[in-house]
Structures are given as structure tokens and as C-alpha cells.
């Protein structure tokens, strides 16, 4: 049985992520132990909350995560977890993991903040993470800040809320989604299944 580790760094609710990963047949551990992270077939960086404190909480695990990624196993950051894959954020001080070149900005006052609810995607670059999904697939978003990605080839899909922003990103074995796949019904479970398949490759 493939093992997935949800990184526990004290940001929000990991219950639903664990529940969803179990549903798709993974053995799930919630852990902040470097050894457990390194030995997992797939790693999820979840996250709800504020970039600054989260970056701080994650600091002691940064080297482990970067090392894990070097071993060519899949990492998925979701919501704040995706934002932490980038360099920096307007939301707070602290550094991201810099696994994907980019930064995080706040939505303008022309739209409701937070961007909360179900929204669809516009596909920019085809990727295996999108298997079985299309532009009519809907995902659940809750966020006030959005990612800006430097290299457009790393943008898998975008979503519109006042502006068009990257909602799925990928650089080799590193994936990020701004929405919550574990809260996005069947379409969300497909993202997690596709991600879990990367662990087998």
C-alpha cells in the first residue's frame, strides 16, 4: 500500500485531507517527523491561515521537504501549502520553499474577499494531474491572496476572480493547487488520485 504523509505544521484542519486520501486507497500519516516525510511515497503540504506564521512553523522542515523533492517523489501543496512552494507573499514576512519561482499577491478591492466558493479552471498546459478533468470541472476555493508564477510553462491551469490567476501549477514532481481538492467533491478526488498515481511511477 502506498503511503502518503500530510505535513503537520500547525496550520488548520487536516481531518478532511486525511479522509480524502484514505478514500482513494492510500495509507495516511499526519506527521512533522523528517524521517516519516522522507520515507513516504507521496507528500502533501496542506495549509489554511497566514503565510507569515506558516512559513515560520515550516522553517525546521524546509530542508527535509527540499531533500524529499530531490528524490523525485511527488509533493502536492494545497491552498496556503501551494503558496508556500513559491518565494514570498504580500501576506506576511517569511520565505517560501522556492520550489517554484513566484510570489503571492492580494486580490484587489474590485472583488469579494475571500474568493470563496466553487470555480472552474482554464487549462494552460496539459498535465497528467488533469486526467479525467476539463474546463467544466469545479473546485472549492477559499483564499484572499493569489499566486503569480514567473515561468508560464509551470502554470497548468488558471481561474478567474476579478483577474486570471494560476490555480494549478507544476514543476516536474512538485504540484500545487490553490483550491482544496479534499473539499471539491468528485473532481477534487480525481486530482488526488492523479497525484497518487505519480507516486507509483
Amino acid at each position: 500500500m502506498l503511503t502518503a504523509c500530510i505535513i503537520d505544521y500547525n496550520v488548520g484542519n487536516l481531518f478532511s485531507m486525511k479522509n480524502a486520501l484514505k478514500k482513494i486507497g492510500l495509507k495516511v500519516e499526519i506527521s512533522s517527523d523528517p524521517k516519516t516525510i522522507m520515507e513516504s511515497n507521496a507528500v502533501i503540504l496542506p495549509g489554511v491561515g497566514n503565510f507569515g506564521p506558516a512559513s515560520n512553523n515550516l522553517a525546521h522542515l524546509k530542508d527535509t521537504i527540499i531533500d524529499y523533492v530531490k528524490h523525485n517523489r511527488p509533493l502536492l501543496g494545497s491552498c496556503l501549502g501551494m503558496q508556500l512552494l513559491l518565494n514570498e507573499s504580500e501576506e506576511g514576512n517569511g520565505e517560501g520553499l522556492k520550489l517554484i519561482e513566484g510570489k503571492v499577491k492580494k486580490f484587489g478591492s474590485n472583488v469579494k474577499i475571500p474568493h470563496m466558493g466553487w470555480n472552474n479552471i482554464i487549462i494552460e498546459n496539459n498535465n497528467d494531474i488533469l486526467d479525467g478533468l476539463n474546463e467544466k470541472s469545479y473546485f472549492y476555493f477559499v483564499h484572499s491572496y493569489y499566486p503569480v508564477i514567473k515561468n508560464s510553462t509551470q502554470i497548468v491551469a488558471c481561474t478567474c476572480h476579478g483577474i486570471k490567476f494560476p490555480s494549478i501549477v507544476s514543476k516536474q514532481n512538485v504540484y500545487g493547487c490553490q483550491f482544496h481538492p479534499e473539499k471539491s467533491g468528485e473532481d477534487g478526488l480525481k486530482i488526488l488520485k492523479n497525484f497518487a498515481r505519480m507516486a507509483k511511477k
Binding site: 481531518f15 478532511s16 479522509n19 480524502a20 477559499v142 473539499k183 467533491g185 468528485e186
Partner: peptide, 9 residues
């Protein structure tokens, strides 16, 4: 209830 859901709660 939460265990049965894959939508926000």
C-alpha cells in the same frame, strides 16, 4: 457527518 463529506462543512 464530516467523515461522509467531500464538500465544505
Amino acid at each position: 457527518v464530516a467523515k461522509e463529506l467531500d464538500i465544505p462543512f
